[in-house]
Nucleic acid binder design. Structure first.
Ligand code: SF4
Ligand code: SF4
Lengths: 165, 165
DNA sequence: CCATAATCGGACAATAAATATCCGAAATAG
DNA sequence: CTATTTCGGATATTTATTGTCCGATTATGG
């Protein structure tokens, strides 16, 4: 039970992109430089976001990434599943079918109490993350940062942002 | 985000132990044989449960494992943390302190919106698992199994169970 | 239109974690 | 006391994560 750190990076990148006006974006190298993380690995996470349809891309000289839909419609769950895949965390090996008292497959049509309990916990986890969109995150970050820092970020974005059609 | 399969095995073993009367237990080899899983690896999980204080052990000729407290006071969360450790799934690298717009450590005293959201989701997950004890699991399994299967299990337990002081 | 430069995309190693196994330490029975 | 049986921690093997590289694709500018 360990969430890959690529999820954190992708979340940060998405929040940063959400601060840009519609139609503008950043290239992968700039996103990596902003947080001083390894460039190629940051790019890999962005590719995952792209395949999941969370960001749109443009290749070539003026390429880069921008959000594919409004920030309010992108939740942390979307980002996490884009990076980690959406298979459930608790994988059932059906060991109750093994051994001297193994149950028959017919008896295992519905999943047992253990699997059901973990599934319920995962649902709670998912719904909690689905309730938070990039808009809430960005608002929280802005509220916690001093005015001066926000100006710095704004200036940096203005310098690095590119138009993406 | 993947729950180790040792958790499933440990949960099954604990449920099986909860079916025994107080003061009786099973040895690791029997627990492994019951589900046809690799013996040494099953033993490793039982050691983790032992260190966490969930089961009591006895070594020597009539050794084995038995629950250390009533089944109603052992939750799935207890078992999962015993196997996987209790560190939080989302590990924060504090990358907001890096890069051209890095925040100072003073600005990072309280954790940011991203980390807070993941923490809240983990709390929801934990509370869901903490609400389920071995008693509920055992009742669910019993309700789903035909009478004949339960008799088989009972006979097997009677044959394998040992007294543990 | 074509060569060029810059960017994303997927294939490729290095590292860390989970999985499976072994042998020694401890305790009971006789 | 000694033999036997069991748990306990240290040890290999396999799998997933982390990090890196080079080729495919697109706009630019002559
Ligand atoms: S469904 Fe339940 S009983 Fe069957 S293998 Fe999974 S956890 Fe065990
Ligand atoms: S606390 Fe928040 S801002 Fe800081 S590194 Fe973690 S996720 Fe990023």
């Amino acid at each position: 039970m360990q969430i890959s750190k690529g999820v954190e990076w992708a979340a940060h990148a998405a929040v940063l992109l959400s601060a840009l006006p519609t139609g503008r974006g950043l290239k992968a190298e700039a996103l990596a430089r902003y947080h001083s993380v390894p460039g190629p690995y940051m790019a890999k996470q962005m590719q995952a976001l792209s395949k999941a349809g969370i960001v749109q891309t443009a290749r070539g000289k003026h390429g880069g990434y921008r959000l594919a839909r409004p920030a309010g419609e992108i939740t942390l769950w979307d980002i996490m599943t884009a990076i980690e895949g959406s298979k459930s965390a608790f994988t059932c090996t059906e060991i109750r079918q093994n051994g001297p008292c193994g149950a028959t497959p017919e008896q295992c049509r519905k999943k047992c109490a253990i699997a059901a309990a973990f599934h319920a916990a995962e649902v709670a986890f998912r719904e909690s993350l689905q309730a938070i969109s990039l808009v809430e995150i960005a608002a929280g970050v802005a509220a916690d940062s001093p005015r001066k820092h926000l100006r710095n970020v704004g200036a940096w974005l203005e310098k690095e942002a590119v138009a993406i059609g």
